[in-house]
Every structure is written in C-alpha cells, then in structure tokens.
C-alpha cells in the first residue's frame, strides 16, 4: 500500500515540477523506466507467490535499471544505440507480459 502511495506521490511531483530531462540522460531514461517497471511487475508477482523479499526487490530494481542503461550506453558507443534500445525494450516488455500473465492467473484464476 505504501509503495503505491509512493508511486502516486512521485507522479504528482513529476507533474507539478515538470522536470526537464538533461540531454545526456535522454536516451537512457525511457529504458531505465521500462526496466524499473519490469522489476515492479516482478515484485508484484513474487508478492502474490509469497516469495517477496525487500532486499531482492531493491537490488533487482537498481541492477535492472543500471544494466539496461549500461547496455544502451554500450550500444551508443558501438553505433547501434537505437537498435540496442529497441532490443532492450522488446526483452523487458516480454518479461513484463510474462509477469502480468502470472499475476492475472493469481488474481483472476484465469
């Protein structure tokens, strides 16, 4: 419950402050957000499985974000930045779908 409120607070803060994303961060931010969403859905699923662990969640959240940004950074350096971000987004989206499917089975039994 508290994390959900935290998410809302973050969204409201973002809407109120209208932050401008620094240029050097612009290619990585969307990827990092998708990676974080993947970690969040994974956490939600493990809560339902009864396997949730804060430490694992925090570490997976941070490492997901870092690794995703790192891969895109590496792609940028190799000159395939846009393809690399597409690849990362595809993989993360597939994971999100898999997690959502597990969550759906738990909640709706379908």
């Amino acid at each position: 419950m508290i994390p959900a409120i935290g998410l809302l607070v973050g969204i409201v803060l973002g809407l109120l402050l209208q932050p401008t994303v620094p240029v050097w961060l612009q290619p990585y931010l969307p990827i990092a957000v998708v990676a974080a969403l993947d970690a969040v859905f994974g956490a939600f699923r493990s809560v339902l499985d009864g396997l949730f662990n804060d430490r694992i969640f925090v570490i997976s959240f941070l490492s997901n974000v870092l690794v995703a940004a790192l891969i895109v950074f590496l792609g940028d350096q190799l000159g395939v930045g846009s393809q690399m971000s597409t690849g990362v987004v595809v993989v993360l989206t597939m994971r999100i779908f898999a997690n959502v499917a597990a969550i759906r089975r738990h909640l709706l039994k379908a």
């Binding site: 409120i5 935290g6 607070v9 973002g14 809407l15 932050p19």
Partner: peptide
C-alpha cells in the same frame, strides 16, 4: 527504501513522458 524507489519511478516516469 521501496517507497523511495517507487517515488523515484513515478517521478522519472512523468519526466520521461513529458520529455
């Protein structure tokens, strides 16, 4: 800690969308 992460997530989400 988790709440902080969620706040950061919400903040960056809106930042990424508006950006």
């Amino acid at each position: 800690m988790i709440t902080v992460l969620f706040i950061v997530l919400g903040f960056t989400l809106t930042a990424a969308i508006s950006g």
